[in-house]
Nucleic acid binder design. Sequence first.
DNA 1: TACTTGCTTGACGCTTACGTTAACGTAATG
DNA 2: CATTACGTTAACGTAAGCGTCAAGCAAGTA
Lengths: 166, 166
Amino acid sequence: MKIDLINQESFSISELSATFNLTSRALRFYETKKLIEPTRVGSRRIYSKRDKARLALVVQGKNVGFSLDEIKEMLDLYDIRDGQETQMKISSIKFRAQIVKLVEQKAQIEMAIAELTKLCDQVDVVVSGQPSDMKITEILNGKKVTLNAKIDALNTKSQPAGAETH
Amino acid sequence: MKIDLINQESFSISELSATFNLTSRALRFYETKKLIEPTRVGSRRIYSKRDKARLALVVQGKNVGFSLDEIKEMLDLYDIRDGQETQMKISSIKFRAQIVKLVEQKAQIEMAIAELTKLCDQVDVVVSGQPSDMKITEILNGKKVTLNAKIDALNTKSQPAGAETH
DNA sequence: TACTTGCTTGACGCTTACGTTAACGTAATG
DNA sequence: CATTACGTTAACGTAAGCGTCAAGCAAGTA
């Protein structure tokens, strides 16, 4: 049973799931999506080095926001052209497109943060000394309040007592 | 059909959906979620000013990344306490929590962008022996239109001819 | 032998926010 | 009167990525 852990040629499902911090269920799911195709010994899955490498790419792809389908597309492309220049260029283009997508998302989030910050400030003004007849609808219409930005204070001040162990 | 469009007291489903750029389906869905509760004339929905105001809050909440359930929670709270100080403080806390969430998401996206940028550079080195004649920074500034054209071309190529008129 | 661990294949569940028919009713206009 | 526009309910579909049983087999250990 002694296996050379350094130069290991094949892996069980639990080994790989541990390595990449994925569940076995996830690996089986990726298999149904044909992202990886382990061989079998009996009914058990045996993952090769190649499977492991592909899995690493899957994880990386996920981390940069590609969907599993998109990842599959690129992996297939890579298989067909085997790392040739054309494939590289295609990947490069997809990467850049993804960057554009992410930049847009980022802008959206920044707008939301700005909006929420504004709301926070408005609420604060009301709570800290204005008459209670001022209704939130009026606030949202921006009729009564002027605003100041304090994002830094927000980041350190908040945290509503909910312990999330994640 | 002569209705005072300026001081309108009630609205049809299509009026409101047009106003907020939502589909009728969406409004009915919000109703099942009890975000709004229009009255009926026969089987037809009649939305009050209050419904309209609530809907405005729903839309705003969505824009800053709250789920419909979260929005409902806050709206209910607002109904119970009717815009009092306690409610304001609670909202304020939720807003700040949401800001924290968004800031985290933003950080994630920034990491992904950095990672992808790195990958792009690496690919470029392999392909051309130089780090990119189409520099990422230029992409982000939208300077190289030729690249955008390439990306568009790619998108139309990989999209199975689905024209979205929205 | 009994028990435990690890692995297997289904197969349904969950989340979020609606889209999409189907099949039909009603109101206003020409 | 017919057409057009707008309305209704009900219920299934979609995307993404697995989670969560259920039920069972095979190998190693006490």
